[in-house]
């Protein structure tokens, strides 16, 4: 018996060695943190990066970690503290984190991380269960005006893009944004279950999370936040339904604080190569994300402006006490 097992252990070790050997020096071993529960938008972005970086041969291995909670405040805190100076780690983040940090008065801010690039943009959607009497955005607006407390929205964490959007929607239809009954869930999976089960009136999320459910007819999309209808889609925009609500949920990738200029360049180059790879384009097509690549100083600028904009929106709807 024993020689048999020894041989197997040998085989296992040989296999891992074989996996570990090729061109160690040239290829990166990266860790990408998704500061959200599995299944959400950031998680999908991190896993898409993993897929593209490995498929395009830019990195030898990419490990995705999930650190969920409070719009990424938990994740960024861990990232800033745990990955400081580590040139092999990146973190996915986006719109949601800007608001969450402002709202939480988080001790960790986006100024502490090293911006690498904006990757994608995603249009937001409001859905209702297929059996709901609400058919259009105007129906939802009417319900809100009738009794705002009874209209419950399910979405991502407090102060995130979904939450901001619920408040903006209420404001745009002339209801009191401060009184929106918004129920945060910690991942796309949990909120989707709540909507499918009819526990809430409506759900707010990015298109990709609900796409399958919309196509299979389990959910009805009553409006999207883009300027014009999305290509190949018959979901009306809010604008064409007379509601002024235009919003995009951007996602970006950051590096830890305290990395050297050289480490930053390595990561920026890797991301740029990834964005230009066929594997990444394939992923974007598959997920229905819009390429919004922006890097270097232009991205750093954008990040600053967006921080100011989001904080203002949150203050105006009473989510951040000024």
């Amino acid at each position: 018996m024993i020689p048999f097992y020894t041989r197997l252990i040998g085989a296992a070790v040989a296999l891992t060695l074989a996996a570990a050997s090729p061109a160690l020096s040239q290829q990166l071993e990266l860790k990408v943190m998704a500061p959200a529960a599995p299944g959400g938008g950031w998680d999908q972005t991190a896993r898409a990066m993993q897929q593209a970086l490995v498929a395009a041969g830019i990195a030898r291995s990419v490990q995705v970690t999930n650190v969920a909670g409070a719009g990424g405040s938990v994740g960024i805190a861990q990232f800033v503290n745990g990955a400081k100076g580590d040139g092999n780690q990146m973190m996915v983040n986006g719109f949601v984190m800007v608001g969450a940090l402002a709202m939480n008065k988080s001790p960790v801010t986006l100024e502490q991380v090293t911006p690498i690039a904006r990757l994608t943009e995603e249009i937001q959607v409001i859905v209702v269960p297929a059996s709901s009497p609400i058919k259009t955005a105007q129906d939802l607006a009417a319900a809100l005006k009738a009794d705002i407390a009874k209209v419950t929205f399910a979405g991502g964490s407090a102060g995130g893009v979904d939450h901001v959007m619920a408040a903006l929607f209420a404001g745009a239809v002339g209801a009191d944004a401060k009184k929106v009954n918004y129920i945060p869930f910690s991942g796309g999976g949990e909120s989707l279950a709540a909507i499918l089960g009819g526990k809430v009136t409506a759900g707010i999320s990015g298109m990709s999370e609900y796409d399958g459910q919309i196509k299979s007819g389990k959910l009805r999309a009553i409006g999207v936040t883009s300027e014009k209808r999305l290509p190949g889609s018959d979901i009306p925009t809010f604008k064409e339904q007379g509601i002024d609500l235009v919003l995009a949920n951007w996602r970006a990738v950051m590096a830890p604080p305290g990395i050297t200029a050289e480490q930053k360049k390595t990561l920026s180059d890797a991301v740029e190569k990834m964005v230009k790879s066929d594997a990444w384009k394939e992923v974007l097509k598959q997920k229905g994300w819009d390429d919004a690549y922006l890097s270097g100083d232009a991205f750093a600028d954008f990040l600053k402006k967006e921080t100011v904009r989001v904080t203002d929106v949150l203050k105006s709807v009473g989510l951040v006490k000024s």
Binding site: V67, G69, A70, G71, S73, V74, A77, Q78, V80, N81, A100, M103, N104, S106, P107, V108, S157, A158, G159, I183, P184, S186
Partner: peptide, 18 residues
């Protein structure tokens, strides 16, 4: 989770993770 406010963290960032 529901309001994003830190509880019993005493300003220590690591404790935000719970």
């Amino acid at each position: 989770k529901l309001t994003g406010q830190p509880r019993l963290a005493f300003g220590i960032p690591e404790l935000l993770d719970g």
